[in-house]
Design a protein around this nucleic acid. Structure first.
Lengths: 218, 218
DNA sequence: AAATAAAATTAGTCTTGACTAATTTTATTT
DNA sequence: AAATAAAATTAGTCAAGACTAATTTTATTT
């Protein structure tokens, strides 16, 4: 199988490919990983030799079929572990990413599938990202936010769109978790800020930006 | 914190210390890890510098207070993950050790405690080894075996004493798991073999050796 | 098109944690 | 006690994966 570094490069390339869709350059990878471009060039050679990626000055770095498969599995493991950490171990939003970053590298042929089953085959991770299925397919990214809820309507928190620690820690402070019920009391026309009730508690006002950062299920 | 290798050495020294109780030599460590004694000498220097062990020609290798603490935590994590893999993910006896060997190195201050709580604070892992508590204390190794059950009595499987894959795979074949109920129908005086009923199913005969390898709770 | 800036690449270095081979120290026999 | 065997240690090497510095290639300006 692959080394820790190889897996991290694969995942990085996968992410750049999905996020940007543009040509993936050594510099882009270097920036994304916080590595030196020279190191990236070394690894590009290594992954090319292993037939996980192809590299062409014109086209940039691309994942081969095998590379895509392997990268998808790493992402699958990462997102499943995130669900586990949040739902089963009671971690907060802002704590799970780094731990999942380590857990995703645990190598065992059936681990992801068993975890998937244990968690009830979740579609999305706590950040709203779709979890690739065992066959590699996955749903579209979750897109409905609190800002889409009509006044008087209520919804449940499914995931977050913004993953900055500022936002995640704010959620912890407001005691908002996956499954938390939120009711939209009123929308202030002036600045589109929202008056909400969290789990039936007293009213609180949050910004438009906040509303657009919280992924919900109506 | 410590590197993967450092942790593996710590754990190895901890195990030799508990198992044998004798003087721990570089050669013993090398054999246990399958490494070259020269490599062990290098690592002894490193761990000594980090004040995790002490080394003296006369006394051999010893864990310092900090080394004991760190090693105990690794063992705690290993055994907790084993319980998780077996109980929650449905792995068989013979599959969990290697995966736990990787999981034990996941670094997070609260992970072990959260996992412990999630699993209901188990006392023993599936191999009958006591799981160190958060404070480092732990119970004595589980010792009652199927061979201690009186004829007509019944018990539940708690763990295994023998961890060879031969035995573990035999258990899988017999469909014996943690919690499996076993009734002792008869003991054959000739060779002390045991006639048992697994989960109320038809009678089966197993050897004395088998009986002594299965840890049970009456 | 030439000049300049940016990106990519090469060459060489460093650290970790293994290794082998050679040597020294300690234990065990005879 | 001397000879031999075993264990410990030192010295030097290797691969992975990072780095810096220097160079070459490609893109962008003027």
């Amino acid at each position: 199988m692959h080394t820790l570094s190889e897996e991290n490069y694969l995942k990085c390339i996968y992410r750049l490919w999905h996020d940007k869709g543009q040509k993936i350059t050594p510099t882009a990878i270097a920036e994304s990983l916080g590595n030196n471009p020279a190191s990236v060039v070394d690894m590009i050679r290594k992954l090319t030799d292993k037939q996980l990626i192809s590299y062409d000055k014109k086209k940039g770095v691309e994942l081969t079929a095998q590379g895509q498969k392997d990268a998808t599995l790493i992402v699958r493991r990462h997102r499943l572990w995130e669900v586990f950490l949040l739902e089963k171990l009671g971690y907060h939003w802002d704590e799970i990413h780094d731990i999942a970053e380590e857990l995703e590298h645990i190598k065992d042929a059936t681990l992801a599938d068993r975890l998937d089953k244990f968690l009830g085959f979740p579609e999305y991770d706590p950040h709203g990202d779709p979890i690739p299925k065992a066959n590699g397919k996955m749903a579209k990214r979750f897109s409905t936010t609190l800002a889409d809820v009509k006044t008087g309507g209520s919804c449940r928190v499914v995931a977050v769109k913004d993953t900055t620690s500022q936002f995640l820690q704010y959620l912890v402070k407001l005691d908002i978790n996956i499954g938390t019920k939120i009711q939209l009391i009123e929308e202030i026309p002036f600045d589109s800020s929202l008056v909400i009730s969290i789990n039936g508690a007293e009213h609180k006002t949050v910004s438009q930006k906040f509303g657009e950062s919280l992924l919900i299920d109506m």
